[in-house]
Design a protein around this nucleic acid. Structure first.
Lengths: 138, 138
DNA sequence: CAATAGATTAGAATATTTCTAATCTATTTT
DNA sequence: AAAATAGATTAGAAATATTCTAATCTATTG
């Protein structure tokens, strides 16, 4: 259980002003035991339910974008109508269960290193991401 | 160079009515030599420029969705603000050049088979997709 | 060839994302 | 320590993107 001061410190350290809105969003995202997969809509709904004063959607977007830029969350794109963010920013991949729309982390250790036979001269590789789409067996 | 009749046949075979709108969209997507990576906005712009009668955006969405469902095109999600479709529906992966926003096919043969060390009981794997993000070397 | 059932289109409604003027925060000046 | 200032942040409004559904079109049947 982190208290607000922890978040205030961390925000300040990374050059983000610790506003009421950001602290509330930090608590929602990071004050939990497990990694959290969420869409903007999910987050907005949670914030709405736990908070008396409404945080505008624009602010939620702003905050998520700045947290992403700082590397506190990671964006995961699966289909055009499901854009998720992930509080687990370590190097990892994903299972996506098409039957349930559930997203499951797949650790880097769970996959043998990807080997490319093709290289592109003059380019550097920034990341290699694997998405394994699965479905329930009937 | 395919003529309209080819598309009319193919649409009819797959249970889609060969309407004017769908034939125009088929010509734009499939009457070309190379595989085509596009967003809805790209497609709308092209259709607008080559066609006197405007096809509504809603119809473009409908058509792309039904073509996707029939397996004529594939959806590729890269970031929340870039959703592409691909006329190459064969099993393949992608390079995405972050410097230029360019999307490049990476054939299945160009990657050593991905081996998962972790399995999920009761689930079947539908697809494994790799996205390699690259950038220009300065 | 008219009637009918059902598929398709596209305007309207809704949802999502971005823009920017007003507000707030932190720093500097007095 | 308060006021002034610069610049960051918020959130309403504007812009974009997507979906819904009534009206239209297509194909089939009699």
């Amino acid at each position: 259980m982190s208290n607000n001061d922890t978040f205030i410190q961390k925000l300040r350290c990374s050059g983000l002003r610790p506003t009421k809105q950001r602290i509330k969003i930090c608590k929602t995202l990071f004050d939990r035991n497990n990694t959290f997969h969420f869409s903007i809509a999910d987050l907005a709904k949670i914030l709405e339910s736990k908070s008396s004063r409404k945080i505008s959607l624009a602010t939620i977007y702003n905050t998520i974008h700045s947290f992403k830029k700082k590397g506190y969350i990671k964006e995961i794109s699966i289909t055009s109508d499901k854009n998720y963010y992930d509080t687990n920013v370590s190097n990892h991949h994903h299972f996506f269960n098409e039957s349930t729309n559930e997203l499951i982390d797949l650790h880097d250790d769970d996959v043998e290193k990807v080997r490319l036979k093709k290289t592109l001269p003059g380019k550097k590789i920034k990341s290699i991401e694997i998405l394994v789409k699965i479905a329930n067996n009937k």
